[in-house]
Design a protein around this nucleic acid. Sequence first.
DNA 1: CTTAATGCAAAGGCTTTGCAACCCG
DNA 2: CGGGTTGCAAAGCCTTTGCATTAAG
Lengths: 154, 154
Amino acid sequence: MTIDDKTEELLKNLRAQGYRITPQRETVIRIFQEAGDKHLSAEDVYEILQAGGEQVSLATTYRTLKMLVKMNILRELDFAETHKHYELVDENAPPHHHIICLNCNKTIEFEDELVNELGKRIAEKYGVEVVDMQFQIFANCPNEEDDENRKHRQ
Amino acid sequence: MTIDDKTEELLKNLRAQGYRITPQRETVIRIFQEAGDKHLSAEDVYEILQAGGEQVSLATTYRTLKMLVKMNILRELDFAETHKHYELVDENAPPHHHIICLNCNKTIEFEDELVNELGKRIAEKYGVEVVDMQFQIFANCPNEEDDENRKHRQ
DNA sequence: CTTAATGCAAAGGCTTTGCAACCCG
DNA sequence: CGGGTTGCAAAGCCTTTGCATTAAG
């Protein structure tokens, strides 16, 4: 399916749930489509909007992100930083997980069927219904130490 | 080892690293010792302090928490809420993980050797050195739905 | 038309910080 | 004593919200 098809589909979905389709919403969704598997913060999205000369306010950016999360189009990620990140939900894809480097703040995304399997089994054991799962490995990668970003250890 | 012994040990550690031991710091550390395996937010700690008639300002509470995290005495937890939680680090204990209920906001803590093993293996595969890991399962528990707290779905 | 959505600026929640007073070692 | 530590209040950062205006359906 092309990006355009996907965007079309998501927009239809919005309409079906009683939301209005505005150019602002179209633009934000498109940004995530084009971002591939990158995670963007609200500020990231806003900067991309501005760089592209789009007319979307910060407030609307936040409101749109929140709505898209509620609709299960975006998923909210939490990396122990001061702000959240967002990425497109892919219903067909299994949950994926992250290695977060405490030196350089880069994240490595990975999938692992065993982790997912284990998560399901654990949830079952505790009698809860899984909505999402995230395995976060905080680590130091072998990259050069980046003084600028040593915020986790100072 | 008793709680008093542990506190004593941690305080010695502080001193050894050039930090001063103040009544405020003693009190905060003690609160975590007595909290067992509960995770407290900065606000939680501050409330406990006030309830106990202790003289510790909010600013000092935050500063102390930050220092204790830097010293690896506390560990910072992130549950996709608006604020962080803290708990005592236990060097000898394996990392533990959390099920977070999206209905009632309760967390279930669990340990799982397989998860830890898997995490180590994954880190190895990516050539990074593990500092910490957290497996978070977001789920709905079978408790009654609590309207007051349905903040993740409104 | 009707009502949701937007933009703006102000407010909010949580956390950090500047500075003078304080007190640990 | 000297410099780390505290308390207070102000500032900061990210996010949300009230309200008048605009625009989707």
